[in-house]
Write a protein that binds this DNA or RNA. Sequence first.
DNA 1: TTATAATGCAACCTGGAGGTTGCATAACGT
DNA 2: ACGTTATGCAACCTCCAGGTTGCATTATAA
Lengths: 115, 115
Amino acid sequence: MSSNTRSAGAARRRSRAPVFAALGDEMRLLLVAKLSSGQPHSISQLTKGSSLTRQAITKHLRVLEGAGIVHGVRTGRESLFEFDPAPLDEIKEYLDLVSAQWDRALARLKSFVED
Amino acid sequence: MSSNTRSAGAARRRSRAPVFAALGDEMRLLLVAKLSSGQPHSISQLTKGSSLTRQAITKHLRVLEGAGIVHGVRTGRESLFEFDPAPLDEIKEYLDLVSAQWDRALARLKSFVED
DNA sequence: TTATAATGCAACCTGGAGGTTGCATAACGT
DNA sequence: ACGTTATGCAACCTCCAGGTTGCATTATAA
């Protein structure tokens, strides 16, 4: 099951800046790393080992959730957060577009020089 | 010339959060879009059509430059900014790692359920 | 049923991001 | 030589991101 399978395909034209912004923080990247490794984690679990407060972690999780990168469900007395891959696939797709554009530009430049 | 050719390969282990952060702004994404289309642009050119001030644009360019996404060279009385693809390739690579990790997790879950 | 664990909510603090304005300076075109 | 263009620098302003602490609330374990 490669990332193609998940079809970031539809290419929603909403802006991707919020997703990038959500990933623009070391701690949040750490959280993403933990959650993308499989099992959902509770806030307490995610807080353990971190130097930050539980509330700080909570806020980071809300930011990630706001960007759609993660979602949490209240289960009993704890709320479990799970990774959601779609937004990351979308920005990867976006980065590919930028790359492609740049490569085409270079190709044009090259053929012009060779002319 | 695909993005592989540019070898994000070396995979410097410095954190990618700053790069994501630099892309976490609509205006900066716009600048990246313009610059990745080929020709270097001067600050004035980039300011034209924008509702922001020249200094605001300048600050955004400095942020992008700080993340290595762009670099500017003073040429005569103007400083030309040009796109630099390496950082974007690096974070793309990073996103692939996260995706792969997630996919493996799902695969394990699946085989466990089928067991 | 009682103590404890896991969160939610809200008020508060601080630093830096994102913008603006004003002034100084270097390069160009004529 | 002069007016104009393209920038750089710096001071200043406002607002929000990131963190903390304190208190209330809901599940659980014993």
